[in-house]
Design a protein around this nucleic acid. Structure first.
Length: 472
RNA sequence: GUCCCCAUCGUCUAGUGGCCUAGGACACCGGCCUUUCACGCCGGUAACCGGGGUUCGACUCCCCGUGGGGACGCCA
């Protein structure tokens, strides 16, 4: 093929479910490849399976693509709307003798398949109708007349050269009895007519490729370059599926992952650039190429994704992080109306959060003036002996002029000293009084974020709680 | 079963015949910091699937085995 032609790639999902992480990685590689080479990227929905395709799935896939930032230059095109074109091309093959009508029933075919498997043979169409020159009938399908001898060679951009003996390949169906083209045919016609120069897809398609190459040739099309990316496996090395955990891209959004974390994680599953782990999208566009994609399957490792997510939470611009967090708190009916308050909360929470969801949950106490005490925390720390120091804090806070981390720490240390105890002994009770929990951001950070007024209110509530408990 | 692909720490990977006493990252284990939890910092455990070749020299090249994955649909 002409090497100086502009690169055109595509992602062609079938709308039979959500976008899963494997598909997302394929889309990402296509997107990066075209961007890197200054080409364009097309989205095509392969909906020729009328039974399983749904509009909801299409919508879900588009949403996920957008969330990941994989914007397409053309499309989405819908394959089912192109059936007239496909039929015309099928007709052309029939006319030239490269395809023929077949009336074998699915039942008979299935039987033959089973017995072939049982006898240890490779199941192949036996060519019953190949030379019968049958006319089209309501139940007939169209099969491609594939060469019986010779070798078809694939020069894969990732896997290298792969050869197939043509005798391994049988006469595949290219048009179903319902008049719709099958995948292997439609994909060839569409890729060729849309000018796709590089077909980058999962390596579960390797075995389809020689058939497709034969179709390109029979149709008189230029054969594109292929790059087959290895599969993503679960922890047990089996193909990644729901039983390994979340596989839907949008599920990761809901679990509080940042799109850049998922993108960074997925790109490193199979691709690398020396020892570098963190990549911005711009860097990826600059650095990505198929030559650095590995040949072997990779195990999906949620731990590393979490680490990346944590990294991106730590480095995300504050305003954006606040915007990302809002929906998580609004979902919990919390008041997100005070921008300064939110910014401060987010600043407290972000260094210790793995996901936005976790961040949202751990920050709920900021919004609740009536702090809910965890039972064990209250039992251990809200006891009568801490009423003294907590009372001192509540009473003395108004006079603290330097209400900063430093000033607050000095103030608390002074109270500890006066009470002849150590800061650590009053820190936990104070933490429980302010948050209801034993684990939280730093006391000083919380006090600044909450402000003196709320801190005093919470302390008074805690003192009342201690008193009530003492009476029982 | 047949065909196709793959094979470096538990995981993701660097490595393209001498730079390897095999590097980085996640996870894990210690230590430091400390008002909890994290963050951070410092340190540690841990791998070239096996066997034959080729070569002065193999993680790197070839063959065989083994293991894993994929395909074998009127699904894509």
């Amino acid at each position: 093929m002409n090497e100086d032609r502009k690169v055109v790639t595509r992602f062609a999902p079938s709308p039979t479910g959500y976008l899963h992480v494997g598909g997302a990685r394929t889309a990402l590689f296509n997107w990066l490849f075209s961007r890197h080479h200054g080409g364009s990227f097309i989205l095509r929905i392969e909906d020729t399976d009328q039974l399983r395709s749904t509009d909801e799935s299409t919508r879900a896939i588009l949403d996920a693509m957008e969330w990941l930032g994989l914007v397409w230059d053309e499309g989405p095109y819908f394959q089912a709307q192109r059936v007239q074109i496909h039929r015309k091309m099928v007709e052309r093959l029939v006319e030239t003798g490269r395809a023929y009508h077949c009336t074998c029933t699915p039942e008979i075919l299935e039987e033959k398949r089973k017995s072939a498997l049982a006898e240890g043979r490779k199941p192949k169409y036996d060519g019953t109708c190949r030379d019968k020159r049958l006319p089209r009938t309501p139940d007939s399908v169209v099969r491609f007349r594939s060469p019986e001898v010779g070798v078809t060679t694939l020069d894969d951009l990732i896997k290298g050269t792969i050869s197939f003996n043509n005798e391994e390949l049988d006469d595949l169906v290219i048009e179903r009895s319902d008049g719709f083209p099958t995948y292997n045919f439609a994909v060839v016609v569409d890729d060729a007519q849309m000018g796709i120069t590089h077909v980058i897809r999962g390596d579960d398609h390797v075995n389809n490729t020689p058939r497709q190459i034969q179709l390109y040739e029979a149709l008189g099309y230029e054969v594109p370059r292929f790059g087959h990316v290895p599969m993503i496996l679960g922890a047990d090395k089996a193909r990644l599926s729901k039983r390994h955990g979340a596989t839907s891209v949008m599920a990761y959004k809901e679990m509080g992952y940042l799109p850049e974390a998922l993108v960074n994680y997925l790109v490193r599953l199979g691709w690398s650039h020396g020892d570098q782990e963190i990549f911005s999208l711009d860097e990826l566009v600059d650095l990505f190429d198929l030559g650095a994609v590995g040949k072997s399957a990779a195990v999906f490792n949620p731990e590393k994704l979490i680490w990346l997510n944590q990294h991106y939470i730590k480095t995300c611009p504050e305003d954006r992080l606040v915007d990302l967090m809002k929906p998580f708190w609004q979902e919990r009916d919390l008041d997100t109306g005070d921008p300064a308050f939110l910014r401060s909360i987010v600043a407290d929470l972000r260094p210790r959060a793995k996901t936005l969801l976790e961040m949202a949950e751990s920050g709920v106490f900021y919004f609740q003036d009536e702090v809910v005490y965890e039972e064990a925390a209250a039992a251990q720390f809200l006891k009568s002996e801490v009423a003294g120091p907590l009372g001192d804090i509540a009473g003395g806070l108004a006079d603290v002029e330097d209400y900063s981390k430093k000033g607050i720490e000095d103030f608390l240390r002074k109270i500890a000293e006066e009470r002849a105890t150590k800061l650590k002994h009053i820190a936990q009770p104070l933490r429980v009084a302010l948050t209801g929990k034993t684990v939280s951001p730093g006391i000083d950070e919380i006090m600044i974020t909450l402000g003196k007024k709320r801190v005093v209110e919470r302390l008074l509530r805690a003192l009342a709680y201690i008193e009530r408990k003492g009476e029982r």
